[in-house]
Amino acid sequence: MADTDDVVKRILTTYDTITVVGASASPAKAAHRVPALMQRHGWRIIPVNPRGGQILGEQAYRTLAEIPEQVGLVDVFRPAERAPEVARQAVAAGATALWLQLGIASAQAREIAEAAGLAYVENRCLAIELRRLGLDAPGLRA
């Protein structure tokens, strides 16, 4: 666990933008509430949702490949069986960290991410870790 805690802290203190695969426009869903909380704490959110449109006031992209800028941290709100494909897409998009939300774990996604040198966290919630560690986005710290 200590190793995972180190990775969690490194991710939350390094990345100021979070690309959220499976972001939802529905306030009832964790895939909306968690990115909204991260946004309130200063992180920029790039939503990825097959419907596109706007989520949390940001342009939503249909796929990771459509994002017109460098992707760093990819946060995943998709079922575990979809995680390996998201991991492959994250690697192809040049991501440097992959985070699978609470309840999502995938040995195959871990293998893909770690083989490509990505920092990797699974079965953890960004919002819970944020509160546990008492952090804000890197740009907001003095």
Rank of each mutant, 00 (worst) to 15 (best):
M1I: 03
A2K: 08
D3E: 13
D5L: 07
D5R: 07
V7C: 04
V7A: 12
K9Y: 13
Y15N: 10
D16K: 15
T17C: 14
S24H: 11
S24F: 09
A25Y: 12
A25V: 15
S26M: 07
A28S: 15
A28T: 13
A28W: 04
A31Q: 14
R33V: 11
R40V: 05
H41Q: 11
G42S: 11
G42D: 05
R44T: 15
R44F: 03
I45S: 05
I45N: 11
P50F: 02
P50H: 05
G52F: 13
G57L: 05
G57Q: 05
R62C: 09
T63H: 10
E66T: 11
I67C: 06
I67R: 09
P68V: 13
E69G: 07
E69P: 01
L73H: 09
V74Y: 02
V76S: 00
R78D: 00
R78W: 00
P79C: 01
A80F: 01
P84V: 00
V86T: 10
A87L: 02
R88V: 01
R88L: 00
Q89L: 10
L100N: 00
Q101M: 05
Q108W: 00
Q108G: 01
A115Y: 05
A116T: 02
G117N: 15
L118C: 03
A119E: 12
R124H: 12
R124M: 04
L126I: 07
L126Q: 08
L126F: 06
I128T: 06
R131A: 13
